[in-house]
Design a protein around this nucleic acid. Structure first.
Length: 734
DNA sequence: AACCCATCTGCG
DNA sequence: GCAGATGGGTTC
């Protein structure tokens, strides 16, 4: 560029006060403002403005006043005048010339020169927005927490000169490595340590007998391996207790590597401090809940998450990315390794395995057999224990005996489905599951209503007659945790009873005999492992009318059963037992079989094959569009869909139970769209080339997502009101 | 929300 | 013929 060109451009860039304000404020003010000199170098800032409007989801050029030239760096948070309002934005880049050929408004204020929107986060936000048919602005709101000025000021800019800083902690597969039972671990960790980007789906062995070899220790070991190689690490756990366990495992490592905990519930100041510690390079390792998935560690080398199927890993705000989406996108963007860990494997992760993105990281069958407890199944028609105390607790004799024997040597875990977890009903006389007379759907109670109704066709069940015994009475097949606790407490007199559930979650219990009643996900860890575990109301978990009922049931069972001592037993920790209560025994049920054999890998493969055969997700891409009926209809009408997309619906949907009463809401509808996976690399592929060019292949050529995104932008441009939610790859088709 | 601009309208 | 009203699209 010649000097002349440059001069002309600068002329163009001179901020011009609008005629109106000049008239109002007078010539003096206009002169003063017009005279504000622009930055000598790169006077143009491209700013991603948080407009909240889908059709304006792109950067806009602003002029950089000379006074801001040092602060308005790429990534800085700014305030700009946009369409008559003051809006927040981030500087994306600085340049000498504007792409926009009109007049540029000057940036109003640099909120903070901290470069929070890193090129990596921007690329990730763009890729996620494209993949989920959302806006970059929405993703940025998820990715960058609210700033806390005091926290920003208090934290030193430069990391304190640390003698170790984690980098001198050497990790290796020593004799005590928690990775020892996993043959593929050596290759994975070696590749990780040498700067590679391996991907693995790790099926952790059950067992908590040795805290030095449990899964938190293994995750900590992997994190330190990456950190020792100078790479950044993000580890995401579903809940708080899991974060604390991984933290403890990190602290237990020799040299205790520098890490930071990052969770949403720690408050704005602590959260911003933790976020900045990652950004400024004070720590290489971030451990946290879903809020940590975007943590801006430098030189990202490893992303890891635990228990892919836990719904806490699903972001409830638009565009609804799962932690798996965030982390695999980040890994692809940064050339980092991927570690998806759990006692079970979701179908979504199985799809990544079968696509080649993730390798199977599993222990040999003999090791699984040694580590797993012995699992027995007590069917729905099983004899209730003859012991009157057991009968009052509605326990089959197998379960009663297992619990009684185990209580002599240690704690016993009892898992009961969550309160309000689609409680089902059964015949009061013969205890067989109650079925709708019209469609044979399960009969259940919804909160707020005292009349049982069919969960499939929603018909109220006014007069029930059991087809098996002719009885007319109904009882709740799923008993709440509190009542179960009372009943079991009576059945096993003298044994202490603990409960752990939403609201009151226990982290751990002692090795002494006790009964621990817990809802799924709230099971405390037992010192030395549980002696036994009863999994109640299996049928209720399996019979949910959702696509992922089997997967979810198995995940919950394995999570509880993994806290039990191994079947083999040892002098220190005698034989562990698990009893699945109330499962169908007349027909083979894959989830039950997988639990008995402890083979979650087999189950995931089978489940994916089943879904593929039916043309269902995740083999095909799914999108769910929901909103007011007229809005959904209009939206679908205007979509420019590729030919291979199948549109199911829209079908009317009711308001979620409990909300419908009283408040009149416009009728809702939902449509499901199914499309073949794009031919482009799977969004989960971590092995992809470290981003070739800026945002290369960000859209992934996914025509369905692109069409939905265009549709939303068009709606936004037309100022069409009415709520509309668009979810891509939802966990369930609803 | 504010602005720009094209088009319309009412009055001469 | 033209100032002011009206409406739809853009927003740097």
């Amino acid at each position: 560029m010649t000097d002349v060109d440059r001069g002309e451009q600068l002329e163009l860039l001179t901020p011009v006060v609008s005629a109106r304000s000049a008239a109002r404020d007078g010539a003096a003010a206009a002169k003063r403002k017009a005279a504000a000199p622009l930055a000598a170098v790169d006077p143009v800032a491209s700013v991603w403005v948080d407009t909240g409007l889908a059709h304006l989801d792109r950067p806009f050029d602003y002029a950089v006043p000379a006074s801001m030239t040092a602060d308005a760096v790429p990534g800085a948070r700014v305030k700009v005048r946009f369409a008559g309002q003051d809006l927040d934005g981030f500087v994306v880049s600085r340049s000498a010339v504007a792409a926009h050929d009109g007049r540029l408004t000057p940036i109003r204020k640099v909120v903070s020169p901290e470069p929070v929107l890193t090129p990596h986060l921007l690329a990730v936000a763009q890729a996620l927005a494209a993949d989920k048919a959302g806006t970059v602005g929405d993703v940025l709101r998820l990715a960058i927490p609210p700033r806390h000025a005091a926290a920003e000021k208090a934290l030193p800019v430069e990391p304190p000169a640390s003698p170790g800083g984690g980098s001198e902690v050497s990790a290796h597969l020593s004799g005590s490595s928690p990775w020892l039972p996993y043959a593929a671990a050596r290759a994975f960790l070696g590749h990780l340590a040498s700067g590679g980007a391996p991907g693995a789906s790790w099926l952790a062995l059950p067992g908590v007998v040795d805290p030095l070899s449990d899964w938190p220790a293994a995750l900590a070991d992997a994190a330190v391996t990456a950190a020792a190689a100078g790479r950044g690490v993000v580890v995401v756990l579903p809940d708080h207790r899991d974060v604390t366990r991984v933290e403890a495992a990190l602290k237990a490592l020799p040299g205790c590597p520098a890490y930071v905990r990052l969770t949403a519930d720690q408050g704005p100041q602590a959260r911003w401090t933790a976020w900045l510690k990652a950004l400024r390079g004070h720590v290489r390792i971030v451990v946290g809940t879903r809020a940590a998935a975007f943590a801006p560690v430098r030189d990202l080398g490893l992303v890891a998450w635990w228990d892919d199927g836990d719904d806490l890993l699903e972001e409830p705000r638009a565009p609804y990315p799962h932690v798996r989406d965030v982390l695999t996108t980040r890994a692809r963007e940064a050339g980092a390794a991927v570690l998806s860990a759990g006692f079970s494997r979701t179908v979504a992760v199985e799809a990544l395995v079968e696509s080649g993105a993730l390798a199977r990281l599993e222990a040999p069958r003999e090791a699984v057999r040694r580590a797993a407890p012995l699992v027995r199944v007590a069917g729905t028609e099983a004899d209730l224990a003859r012991d009157p105390a057991a009968a009052s607790a509605h326990l089959p004799s197998v379960a009663w005996e297992a619990a009684r024997a185990a209580l002599a040597v240690g704690p016993v875990l009892v898992q009961v489905p969550r309160r309000g977890y689609l409680p089902s009903m059964s015949c009061l006389t013969c205890r067989r599951p109650a079925r709708c007379a019209v469609c044979a759907g399960p009969v259940g109670l919804t909160s707020g209503s005292s009349v049982p109704q069919c969960r499939w066709c929603a018909r109220p069940v006014v007069e029930f007659t059991c087809p098996h015994c002719g009885g007319h009475g109904l009882r709740a097949a799923v008993t709440g945790a509190r009542r179960t606790a009372e009943e079991l407490g009576r059945a096993f007199r003298g044994v202490p009873v603990h409960t752990s559930g939403s609201g009151q979650v226990l982290a751990s219990v002692a090795a002494a005999p006790s009964l621990v009643i817990a809802t799924p996900g709230a099971e405390p860890v037992a010192d030395g492992g549980y002696a036994a575990c009863l999994l109640l109301d299996a049928w209720a978990s399996l019979d949910r009318p959702t696509l992922d009922a089997g997967e979810e049931a198995l995940r919950r069972w394995l999570a509880a059963a993994a806290l039990v001592r191994p079947r083999g037993g040892s002098p220190r920790s005698p034989e562990g037992r698990v009893v699945l209560v109330g499962a169908p025994t007349h027909t083979p049920v894959p989830a039950v079989e997988a639990l008995v054999r402890w083979d979650p890998g087999w189950f995931a493969g089978r489940e994916l094959a089943d879904r593929s055969a039916l043309g269902l997700p995740p083999r095909r891409r799914a999108a769910v569009v929901q909103g007011e009926r007229s809005v959904v209809a209009g939206f679908l009408e205007g979509l420019d869909l590729p030919g291979e997309v199948v549109v199911l619906g829209p079908t009317p949907v009711g308001e979620p139970a409990g909300q419908a009463a009283g408040r009149p809401t416009p009728p809702q509808a939902r449509a499901t769209l199914l499309a073949p996976r794009a031919a482009s690399p799977d969004p989960g592929s971590p092995a992809g080339a470290p981003s070739a060019g800026p945002h290369a292949g960000a859209a992934g050529g996914d025509a369905l997502a692109a069409a939905l995104r265009r549709g939303r932008a068009a709606r936004s441009a037309r100022k069409e009101g009415g709520g509309l939610t668009v979810r891509l790859d939802p966990r369930d088709l609803g």
